[in-house]
Structure formats: structure tokens, C-alpha cells
Design a protein around this nucleic acid. Structure first.
Lengths: 131, 131
DNA sequence: TCTAGGGGTTCCAGTCATGGGAAGGTCAAG
DNA sequence: CTTGACCTTCCCATGACTGGAACCCCTAGA
């Protein structure tokens, strides 16, 4: 398989796949003409990485998850720990975004949004009101 | 005021303040010794930017907001439009994170997290289950 | 046989909003 | 006079790509 086919089937840009090789996430073989020669296992790994990235795992998380995936003697506790740590990060980010949303929608609701210059959004940003 | 005092009072790292000057968000005067000489208005602007950043506005948003803030003839509609666009981005990000959280907590809940290798998290990432 | 096109390859630079650290100038206190 | 806390500029690194240039390879059609 050439890179384009893998890209289409894994749902990742070819550029991203080259990058993943560069940082050692995958090691596709090479054909005689220098083209990358992907096997099914490479495709499988890339799809795995793609899904992990889709769940917000970092590249380093993906590296660790792949290593666990390939380690037949893994303990599921190790995987779970990784996932729970990530879940905690997601929840923190959610809290942060929800706080932003609350503050910002309060300001937006207070703003007339007409042709006049008076604007609670700007005064809100100007005074120290937003924790 | 030197940069350290402004940094402390605005709640921003000195490095960040230098960067804001570099990209033209602020233009502090200079003392004879080459030190930046901040005025109250600079501090005020920096605090404004800091709060806007805290609400997740990009630097370019901040530039636009500052321009509106300083434009006495602005229309509050322009400010509101900026804020609403940002609110939409926040909501999209919230949706995305919530979807991640749902999928991931489902996987985590299904995982025993013991010493055995069987792990629904890994099989979940391996099969195409996670939209 | 030539040529066009659609692959592929490497390498370099840019993104966003900083952060880290080096090398050196300035200033107030002891 | 020295110490230590400031200040300055400059360059490099982050994460996870993305874009583009310059070049090679392969197949199909005129």
C-alpha cells in the first residue's frame, strides 16, 4: 500500500502519517523505489492512533497506548490509569470552558448590540469583574 | 513603572508583556536607560488583554477588542458580533469535549483495571467503534 | 517516444501564544 | 566594591501538525 491509500483508509492526511513515522510511532517498510510500503498492521496502528487522537490523547499518550496494545502481558490497570488521567484533563478543560461560556454569555446578553457605543462587554473586560 | 511591577499588577508574565509589545498590542515608552516605561494606560490595556485572553479570545480578537475599546464611535454591535463568534467557538469546543468525555468514560467504566491484559479501552481504540 | 498527470520523496518554514535560557547592561543597598 | 535583583535583546523549543518548493517515479494516451 502506498501512502495515499493508507491515508484514505485510516482517515488521516498523508502528511500526518509521514510525521508519525518521523517521530517513530510507525515504521513502515520501504519499496525499492523509496516509497513507503505499508502493511495491514501499519494501517491498523494508524487507525488506532487516529481514534486515540480523536479522543484527545496526546501523541505521547498514543505512543504509550500503542506499546500497551502490543504488549500481550500488559495489565489493564495501566491502560485505565492513562485513560483516567486523560479524563481528568478533559474534565478540567470542560470546567474552564464552561466558566468562560458563563461569563461571556452574561456579557453578551447584557450588550444591546446596536449602533451606540455603550458596551457592557468592553466595560466588563476593562474592569476587574471576570474571575 | 518597570516591567516587573506591571507584570505583577496585570497578572501577566513579563515575557508575555514583551511579546505583546513585539506584536504591537501595546507601545510602552522607553526610559533613557532603555527600560520600558509603562504608564497607567499601558497597565490598563494589559489587564484588559489578560481578561480577554482569560475568556479564551485569541490575540487577534484582543487586538480588535482593544481597537473597539479605544474607538469612542464604535457600535456595540461590532463588539457583540466578535463575542458571539467566540461564544460559538466555545460551544463547539464544549460539544467536542463532551463527546470525548462520554466515549472515554464509557471505555474506562468497562475496564476492570486489574492485572489482567484484557482491556476494553484498547479494543475500543482498535476497532472502529468511536465516532 | 514524448508528455501529461498524479503519485511519491525530502527538507524547510510557519502556525499560536508563549516559555526557557544565554549574554550582557543597570541600579540600589550593604 | 560587590552582590543580587532587575532590565535588555536574541535565539531556540513547545505540540501536532500544515504548506510549499524542488525533485523523482510510474502509467496511460497521442
Amino acid at each position: 500500500m502506498n501512502i495515499k491509500e493508507v491515508a484514505d483508509r485510516a482517515g488521516l492526511p498523508a502528511k500526518t502519517i509521514r510525521y508519525y513515522e518521523e517521530i517513530g510511532l510507525i515504521r513502515p517498510a520501504r519499496a525499492e523505489n523509496g516509497y513507503r510500503a505499508f502493511r495491514e498492521t501499519d494501517l491498523h496502528k494508524l487507525a488506532f492512533i487516529g481514534r486515540a487522537r480523536g479522543l484527545g490523547f496526546t501523541i505521547e499518550d498514543c505512543r504509550a497506548l500503542l506499546a500497551l496494545y502490543e504488549d500481550q502481558a500488559r495489565a489493564s490497570a495501566d491502560v485505565k490509569a492513562l485513560a483516567e488521567a486523560h479524563l481528568t484533563r478533559i474534565e478540567a478543560k470542560l470546567q474552564e470552558l464552561q466558566a468562560m461560556k458563563r461569563t461571556l454569555s452574561g456579557l453578551v446578553a447584557a450588550c444591546a448590540g446596536d449602533g451606540r457605543p455603550d458596551c457592557p462587554i468592553l466595560t466588563g473586560l476593562s474592569d476587574s469583574c471576570c474571575a
